[in-house]
Amino acid sequence: MDIDKNMGIVVVDDFATMRKVIKNLLKQAGYKNITEAEDGVEALKVLKSEKVDFIISDWNMPNMNGLEFLKAVRADSKLSGLPFLMVTAEGLKENVVLAIKAGVSGYIVKPFTAAVLSEKIEQIAEKL
């Protein structure tokens, strides 16, 4: 199945470095519509003002962390169906379980390669 490279993707991370790394990798993979947000609070504003089809979010962020953001997305009837990929340094088993229980679509532990990110996005997008 062909993945829609025009889908809107929001990259949420408090570190500009990681937003840039992920954005560069997405562009290399052919994705064109990428928006950034610094934390869950800002990301929720983006979700309500722009067309977003796919969320890539960090876990450890100030104001609203990735897990809180995920729960907020799943609790909102207009956003609950959005694919949500967590890309985080949090590899502890209990945190992965928490994210799965909260409805995460996929989970990548940093550090990661371009191939891993690309494959995971395609796996999730193919199920849509």
Binding site: F15, T17, A89, E90, V109, K110, P111
Partner: peptide, 13 residues
Amino acid sequence: DAVGEITNMVSGA
């Protein structure tokens, strides 16, 4: 910013 994120990733790993 990069040093902060590298520290975060090393801590996580």
